[in-house]
């Protein structure tokens, strides 16, 4: 049985279509990411799975049950993007209160320690920083020992070290067999944590694969300074080369998987040294930008290297 099954989900608010057609399944024990730009329909999708909204069309099953099934409230822990607690409720009190809601709660003290909340245990929610609130919210999602944890914008508002600590915690929770549905807009987070990601744009799934596969489907790029002039035409004639650009004295060659090998061989043949050679592989972020950049004049998804270049500089994966 899948942990979560979403088939042709559709949800509208009046005339506004929030989710057009979303399908995916999440296997038990998986960390599944939902990526997408703001307003893509991520939160609506997740809130439907959490039983907070009723789908207008399609089918959603959580652990084989209808999302409205009250028994699921015991089995699914939810961290919502915009949910809060009363300002004067203290951290320790909030965890004790939520622990009392469940049949077999986790140890509140242990969660407080794991999320680094010891110092603010007696602080009121209203006095917490954004990061502390976020960590408390994660703790509350986990207090019921859920089989599935739905985490919306898990590390938004956390500083880098808290973010890394949270990632470690999520991996630890997964190792105990908990299925995790993660909504995020941090590519690094998705790459680090997720087994698979669904990229949602305008209410539809535009890609669904492992973060690595989504990244490597894209092209590779070489950037180097030639020790002697090289004709663009020579490079363009090589197999797997799709484009050649000049950046001052640097040459940027883009293409498929064989581009590095072919360019290196051609240069060596002519006795040219590629100085300061860097190889860049498109990562999930590039894939994301490509997948979700919509060209208004046409019906095609923007997919050219230029768009990626202009949009977000890709991180170098290897340099030699």
């Amino acid at each position: 049985m899948e942990a979560i099954e979403v088939r042709n989900l559709r949800k509208t608010y009046g005339s506004k279509v929030a989710v057009e057609d979303v399908s995916f399944t999440v296997e038990q024990g998986e960390i599944f990411g939902v990526l997408g730009p703001n307003g893509a329909g991520k939160t609506t999708t997740v809130e439907t799975i959490a039983g907070l909204r009723v789908a207008d069309g399609g089918r959603v099953r959580v652990l084989g049950r209808d999302p409205a099934d009250p028994e699921l409230r015991e089995l699914v822990g939810v961290q919502l993007q915009d949910s809060a607690l009363p300002d004067k409720l203290r951290v320790g009190e909030a965890l004790s209160l939520y622990a009392a809601f469940y049949r077999d709660p986790a140890d509140a003290g242990e969660l407080i320690a794991q999320l680094g909340l010891e110092k603010v245990r007696d602080s009121a929610f209203g006095k917490l920083s954004g990061g502390e609130r976020q960590r408390l919210s994660i703790a509350l999602a986990l207090i019921g020992r859920p089989k599935i944890a739905i985490l919306d914008e898990l590390t938004t508002g956390l500083d880098p070290s808290a973010r890394r600590a949270t990632w470690a915690l999520i991996e630890d929770i997964r190792s105990r067999g908990v299925t995790i549905l993660l909504v995020t807009h941090f590519m690094e987070e998705a790459e680090r944590l997720c087994d698979r990601v669904a990229v949602i744009d305008r209410g539809r799934v535009v890609a669904l694969d492992s973060p690595g596969a989504l990244g490597t489907l894209r092209e590779q790029r070489l950037r180097f300074r030639p020790s002697a002039p090289v004709e663009d035409a020579v490079l363009l004639s090589l197999e797997d080369v799709s484009s050649v650009r000049r950046e001052g004295e640097l040459i940027v060659v883009s293409g498929g998987p064989a581009v590095v090998q072919n360019v290196a061989a051609a240069l060596a043949r002519d006795g040219i040294v590629a100085e300061g050679l860097r190889v860049e592989q498109a990562n999930l972020e590039d894939a994301f930008v490509e997948l979700t950049s919509y060209r208004p004049e046409g019906d095609t998804w923007a997919g050219s290297a230029d768009v990626v270049e202009a949009g977000i500089a890709s991180r170098a994966r290897g340099a030699f």
């Binding site: 039983g51 907070l52 009250p70 015991e74 822990g77 915009d82 809060a84 607690l85 939520y98």
Partner: peptide, 10 residues
């Protein structure tokens, strides 16, 4: 969102 958060618990 206090009520909404509560709606996700038993």
């Amino acid at each position: 969102g206090v009520l909404k958060r509560l709606a996700t618990t038993p």
